[in-house]
Design a protein around this nucleic acid. Structure first.
Lengths: 214, 214
DNA sequence: GCCGAAGCTGAGCGATCGCTTAGTGCGGCC
DNA sequence: GGCCGCACTAAGCGATCGCTCAGCTTCGGC
């Protein structure tokens, strides 16, 4: 598979959009700390320490600790929307596009587990305004997947009695990968992506494509 | 459906095993607070306040804040194991037992969302010893589901290329209900349980039973 | 060679945390 | 009725939190 969204699916931290360098180092340190201990259990001293700076340096680049989480969550959700939109708007049958969406979305959650964990599980730590902004992006994720399933139902490829509920379940299955995936475990992100694409095709009653994912 | 495990699936808080009354009130207050804000963001003053007591009263019944989480997690995991074991050891075909397991497990996560949220997502806040104890119970959950799927594969009811991975996915799907389920949303716990049981039967390649769950 | 801006540090502020201690109110037992 | 024991509270301890501020260093522009 070769959607444009795949180009940053490798092992380079995709934070090149964050400048200057010190701000990026702080942000990467915050992602790691938030993923390990959770937002509330992470101290600003810990973040600054991981970035090799004093606690006060953090406040030159970010107004508050919450702004760090907001930036991380925003960038991560933008990425999630891009992955699912690229798959939804790609070419091929609904089954191929759904398998593409699931396998690439799962690969992202597994391969970028620390980021995904923060993005998916620390949403409640944001204030109301920031959370509303993020929830809008989540609805776009939902819409992208639902669009593919709608297409498959319309074309007769899929047999789905409850499109809304099945969309929810598909996204839920992918997102939860960020909770359990273990980098030192027996499966690679690619393997989990392939397994999950197959399982989701079964859920929607499609004939397995056999090689719908990379 | 009518397994013994169902008897406490209703809307009464299943904390009657916690005595005396003040200890139970504190524990229920802690469940609500942990579910709303997370363990680390919850203060002992908040827990005591919800229980209508002074902060110091907490320490008469529990040694530390972490002991509260440990007790909650232990009771909740015992419940989860009981639900899945009851379904696995029930009568009927593998498909019926799997549908029973999924629908009752999902009903618990949706109907007891606050408890399930704490149980499933605050595990990392426990110390190493307590966490190891809980992880043992999690492996029992995994074993119960895997046993049903193994049975279905052996009897030819299921078509599952990757039993371990599929078991993981089934449990993951159920557990994530605690993250997204909304009490004020359009679906009842029963409805989600029925939907998910159907989706899981599709995942394992079983013929839908049509009415495998209550 | 001087200067101002920018990046960063050491020290520390007020607030709040988990938890402790001294003491109070009260119900049951002889 | 006097007394003991237990559940609970008011007050506060030391530690740590998010965050601030004065001052130091560095470096480009002239």
């Amino acid at each position: 598979m070769s959607t444009a969204a795949e180009t940053t699916g490798g092992d380079i931290e995709p934070w090149e959009e964050v400048t200057p360098d010190a701000a990026r180092r702080l942000l990467v340190a915050a992602v790691e700390a938030f993923a390990e201990r959770g937002y509330h259990a992470t101290t600003t001293r810990d973040i600054a320490g991981r970035a090799g700076m004093s606690p006060a340096a953090l406040y030159i680049h970010y107004k508050t600790k919450e702004e760090l989480l907001h930036r991380i969550s925003r960038i991560g959700h933008d990425r999630a929307v891009a992955i699912l939109r690229a798959a939804a708007q790609g070419e091929g049958s609904a089954a191929e596009r759904l398998a593409d969406a699931v396998s690439s979305f799962v690969r992202w959650h597994a391969g970028r587990r620390t980021t995904a964990r923060v993005v998916q599980y620390e949403l409640d730590a944001l204030g109301p305004g920031a959370r509303d902004e993020i929830l809008t992006l989540r609805r776009q994720c939902d819409a992208a997947v639902r669009g593919i399933i709608d297409d498959g139902v319309a074309s007769g490829e899929f047999d789905v009695p409850d499109v809304k509920g099945t969309t929810l379940a598909v996204l839920s299955l992918c997102i939860d990968v960020a909770r359990w995936f273990n980098v030192n475990g027996p499966r690679t992100p690619d393997e989990v992506g392939a397994l999950y694409a197959d399982l989701v095709l079964r859920m929607v009653g499609a004939e397995p494509t056999g090689a719908a994912q990379k």
